[in-house]
Simulated assay, not measured.
Amino acid sequence: MALIDLTTVVRAPAEQVFDLSLDVDAHTASMARSRERVVAGVDSGRMSLGDTVTWAARHFGVRWRMTSRISAYDRPHRFVDEQVTGPFRHWHHEHTFSWDESATATIMRDVVDFAAPLGALGRTVDALLLERYMCRLIERRNAHLARAFAAGAR
């Protein structure tokens, strides 16, 4: 199993950062490089507790699909998305948001606990490649969200 723990500072109120983080259209825009798109479930707008979405994308030259569900939701503090079906043996992504008055910014934290399939081979792939790749993917997504607020979105 791999664990990613990222913190991103976003110059916007926690409520707005929370909402944009759950927005399917914002996610799709942030993942343009991998041509991620919705193929089932919530296909536009903001997701909420119990909502599911199935994404199709290409990573490492391979097409894959992943269905995730919003399994916890406490606006504007925290939500969790978990894989229902997809390429991972396990995927649990906790998003937390806290307002930092002194920085006049929201501290957005992503904690992702995941594991590739295939036992020992999957653990090797996690350690050598997948953890770093997924970390960069989430960093790219978060930078996209931060730029949206810097550009005056919302």
Rank of each mutant, 00 (worst) to 15 (best):
I70H: 00
L121C: 09
T67I: 12
L130F: 01
H144R: 03
S48H: 12
Y133M: 10
Q16K: 14
P117E: 01
M31S: 05
D51C: 09
D51Q: 07
M1K: 02
A153Q: 13
L145D: 00
V80N: 03
A103F: 00
D25E: 15
T85P: 03
R141E: 03
R132V: 13
G119A: 10
S98P: 06
G45C: 08
G50Q: 08
G122E: 07
V53A: 00
R75N: 13
A105S: 12
R136F: 05
M66G: 06
A120S: 14
D23F: 04
A120Y: 11
R69G: 06
V112D: 03
Y133F: 11
H90A: 15
V38P: 00
E139D: 07
M31G: 00
R63T: 15
A115M: 08
Q83E: 14
L121Q: 08
L137D: 01
H95F: 04
I4V: 15
A40I: 15
R132K: 12
I138E: 05
E139S: 05
A57W: 04
H27E: 13
V17I: 12
T52E: 04
S102Y: 08
L128S: 12
G122N: 12
M108L: 15
A32F: 05
V53H: 00
R109Q: 15
S34V: 15
V80Q: 04
S68D: 11
L118R: 14
R63Y: 15
V42Q: 06
S21V: 04
A127C: 02
D110L: 14
V80Y: 02
D110E: 14
D19W: 00
I70V: 08
T52A: 06
D51Y: 05
T104A: 12
G122D: 08
L118Y: 13
V112Q: 02
W99I: 03
F18K: 00
A2I: 01
G152W: 12
M108A: 12
A151L: 13
V17W: 00
R69T: 08
L145V: 02
M66R: 10
T52Y: 02
F18E: 00
H95W: 03
I4T: 13
R132D: 12
F79M: 03
S98T: 14
L22V: 06
F97G: 00
G41Q: 05
A72P: 03
I4A: 13
L6R: 05
A153W: 12
A120R: 11
D126V: 04
R35D: 09
A146D: 02
R69A: 10
S71L: 11
V17Y: 00
E94T: 14
W64R: 04
R63N: 15
H90L: 11
H77P: 02
A40D: 11
T8W: 01
A151K: 12
A103E: 02
F97I: 07
R123H: 10
L129K: 04
W99H: 03
D113C: 09
E82Q: 12
T67M: 11
V112C: 09
D25N: 14
V24K: 03
I138L: 13
T54S: 07
A57S: 12
